[in-house]
Design a binder for these strands. Structure first.
Lengths: 124, 124
DNA sequence: AACATGCTTAACCGAATGGTTGACTGTTAC
DNA sequence: GTAACAGTCAACCATTCGGTTAAGCATGTT
């Protein structure tokens, strides 16, 4: 196999992180979770509430988001709080920006994305 | 299952496209292919050359990039040319930009990414 | 102590992913 | 026409993924 990584694993680490981040973002449930956390930090149970899916499944999704660095979790008492870590998107952003000049940030379009992906607002 | 999509499938279509794009970007081989195509259009065989992987495998990767809209393919004679379509990243960019202000485009960092992910340059 | 809450882990399942090889279809060259 | 080239398709395989249920572990509450 070609060594796509080089530099004795350093680049590989960066590449793996990019893999993890993109893969984490490739699931609509996980993007919805991120959109929810954009509004406020949340406990695991509250994150799970709007989804018709077991708590264990959400717990797995949160683990994937954690390993991708997209969120952090902090246990206070028996509640584990989830916090968005938007910095993890910087590498992704850097990688993407090389592929062209995108139109200046379109907040309207983003609002539509957010609304469409927030599961508890889409059934009204 | 919660209807995460709404609006009679329109949003679902957008969501699916976002899924497809992120998923396509989640594989290092495919990102390397995109980086190669950033330099120039290439025939399928030439895309496959630096990878130690069958032509059929590369053909599949290219199909995935096609369906994600990240590349286009045009057959001229018996050779199929692959062309980068950076516009497909716009939706992804819009989605991402909502999560925070990233530092202004860091071209140096991007160059490093590119070099690290070009498979035929990493073994020198 | 006993119980309820918050969350993770383990075992399992079906479907999707990423790769292989081999046969096949077009297209060009001789 | 025949041979070589460019690429896809089909069948297969191992692994991963996204979900389930059930059990288990901490932490609070009474």
């Amino acid at each position: 196999m070609v060594d796509c990584y080089g530099m004795g694993g350093l680049i590989m680490h960066m590449t793996n992180r990019l893999d993890a981040t993109f893969a984490a973002l490739g699931d609509p449930t996980r993007r919805a979770i991120l959109a929810m956390l954009l509004e406020d930090d949340m406990a695991v149970t509250d994150v799970a509430e709007p989804f018709e899916m077991s708590l264990a499944a959400i717990s797995k999704h949160l683990m994937i988001l954690m390993r991708a660095g997209l969120i952090s979790q902090e246990k206070r008492g028996r509640v584990k709080w989830c916090k968005l870590e938007p910095d993890a998107l910087r590498d992704v952003s850097v990688w993407m920006q090389g592929f062209g000049q995108f139109e200046p940030v379109n907040l309207d379009a983003f609002e539509r994305f957010l609304e469409s992906e927030l599961p508890d607002e889409s059934q009204t």
